[in-house]
Amino acid sequence: MNVFRFAGDMTHLISILVLLLKIYTTKSCSGISLKTQELYAVVFVTRYLDLVTDFISVYNTVMKVVFISSSLAIVWCIRRHKVVRRSYDKELDTFRHWLLVGACAVLALVVHEKFSFQEVCWAFSIYLEAVAILPQLVLLQRSGNVDNLTGQYVFFLGAYRAFYILNWIYRYYSEQHFTRWISCVSGIVQTALYADFFYYYFISWKNNSKLQLPA
């Protein structure tokens, strides 16, 4: 564990806490893409298949349980909670996210570390996480102004993988034979997808104005 990876994990945890805070305090999921949340639930379930078979550390196990349970709880809230579900922007959240699932599944079958069920699922989850934010970014562009908590949620979610890139660079220089091309390339693509959001988020912060993404 290094400071970059710990900062990344904490930033990721903060993004989830901000989203839970928004849904719990406002009892609303307006501006939140259910499709992105479903993709994240798939990402965590397919990535943490080793939750019960390989024990890395208490921290690792606890964080995996937190990520899986929070992503499933958020999907349940938006789909089933009698108050929250009413504010879901169903007509705006129309990204065909199952196409992303299909494309990542094909890519994982072709490019993986080892051809085993667990490794292919792991590669699939890495690829899917890189594109999972797309439905959310599309929804933000369509829904015009973005409420503060939703903007902060997306900001921390994008920032966490940037810390992971620093972690991979650090590990590359500090450990022999450390190469994780699948994670690195996918992580760079993932962070790049946030580039325009980060730009408009910075502008809104600098001008102290509402976050507006151009349609």
């Binding site: 990876r5 994990d9 990721h12 990535r47 080793d50 390989d54 890395i56 690792n60 964080m63 995996k64 990520f67 570390e113 080892k114 051809f115 085993s116 490794e119 792991w122 992971y164 972690n167 994780r180 994670s183």
Partner: peptide, 10 residues
């Protein structure tokens, strides 16, 4: 195929 590395990252 090469042994896949331990997935110690989240």
């Amino acid at each position: 195929s090469s042994a896949a590395y331990i997935k110690d990252e989240l």
